[in-house]
Design a protein around this nucleic acid. Sequence first.
DNA 1: CTCCTTTTTTATCGATCAATACATAAATCG
DNA 2: CGATTTATGTATTGATCGATAAAAAAGGAG
Lengths: 209, 209
Amino acid sequence: MAERGRPRKFDREEALARAMELFWRKGFAGASLSELTAAMGINPPSLYAAFGSKEALFHEAVSLYGRTESPEIWLAIEQAPTAREAFDGFLRATAFSFTQPDKPHGCLIVLGALHADDAGSEAVCAALRKMRADNVTDLAARLRRAVDEGELPAGTDCDGVAAFYVTVQQGMSIQARDGASRETLLAVADGAMAAWYGLTGGRPAARLC
Amino acid sequence: MAERGRPRKFDREEALARAMELFWRKGFAGASLSELTAAMGINPPSLYAAFGSKEALFHEAVSLYGRTESPEIWLAIEQAPTAREAFDGFLRATAFSFTQPDKPHGCLIVLGALHADDAGSEAVCAALRKMRADNVTDLAARLRRAVDEGELPAGTDCDGVAAFYVTVQQGMSIQARDGASRETLLAVADGAMAAWYGLTGGRPAARLC
DNA sequence: CTCCTTTTTTATCGATCAATACATAAATCG
DNA sequence: CGATTTATGTATTGATCGATAAAAAAGGAG
């Protein structure tokens, strides 16, 4: 079971983290092999031996992103007692995650590969698109749970509400990439939550009466 | 004043329109010279003689986009009698514009150049970023006008509200590019408008009382 | 030690990128 | 007409793209 051959000189996870950071900052097509190898501190043959291809490296980088950056965003969706607190926490965590110092602003899954440049990046683009679609599904599932639990009316348009909040979050990626401050994104989150009772038809805002 | 030399064989505006369509669909970096010349029906020397460079062609394409696609979106902002109708019309027109058949879905100004790949595209990226920032400014100006006219309270956070609605619109570009239907985008627009009274502190939704 | 396996470094591969040289063609000007 | 000007088509330019060939280096296995 002991490893045969010359031992790898670099830390694979560390190199992957550097690749993820570069993909996050420049996108799949925008991060060139020479930039990747420079950031990872290795030569091209080492990259291909360890990860297979630029596309495979990107998929691993996205997976790492999902394991390191996403959980804090989705924590509230899973753990908050009410759907309203879940969505509010979701958007507030997004505002924090998208404006971390010393990290690229915005979301890798939204900004990483919007255009299917050539045949090679079509698969990459489709993978991110599916992850974005899954986000809508997950939010809708949380809303349906709220309907089942009686927090929201039976007629709630869970898919439509989920689409709205995902759209806001995706817009926050653009805003964050454009330099919007954490405070601005939190204000956007508050704005989206201002639509909650009107959207869900749940308990109205009593102070308005 | 008569034109000297051999007359141009192609229609410059028509070729520009084809270039705009390709940039819109694939982004600045994603649209290669060979694809551009193929779409425009001309050879590289003709492109450079008529437009100067790929970057200059992109700027002209963005200008054409602003003249042909943007007006219908911004019409309501300028002409609607109330700010609420202005923003509602703005988002509904966006939903229509972003899902036109036989045209790329989403907005060229949002999707055209998110990453500053190299030194050449940094200027392109910055130009689009400025246009996106100007959008926030324009929406905020419409809100301030509503404050002046008494439609909205004096304490309204015009910049924050403008940031929210621009964020929603930018998220709609991602959604449209991902294949969201016109109906879905209209539902997102309705969702954003559901936040209006809560955000602006204006006249509350009477039906909730 | 000698084999064997794997990683390393160096140098490069063919393809494609944005951008041009060059010669020819098609118009106006004198 | 010849001279000038501009556009066109063909063929390339140097640079960079993602991906490798080849040989030296560094470990364990026998």
